[in-house]
Amino acid sequence: MESLIMSSRIHRMTRFLEEKRTGFAVARLIMLCGVHVRSYDADSVDNPAELHRVQQAVESLLDEPDRRALAKLLSAMD
């Protein structure tokens, strides 16, 4: 239910990564994509260019099962 009321995909991906891989992975995500993901809260409007960079970077930090789980989570937001 919570994922349905979050509009920011960047925020949702960041939370997912943190839950799966800890805050260290979020720091690495910021380093990889150069986006200040922690400035996005649940209701933020995603910048399209930043969303693309975050999406690419977060996938490189997850294994295949987690990538599938994230994809499912994000499709529930559509």
């Binding site: 800890t22 805050g23 260290f24 979020v26 720091a27 690495r28 380093m31």
Partner: peptide
């Protein structure tokens, strides 16, 4: 520090 503090108990983030 970038990423975190490195300690003998591992990386400490935020």
């Amino acid at each position: 520090t970038s990423l975190g503090l490195l300690t003998s108990k591992g990386v400490q983030s935020d």
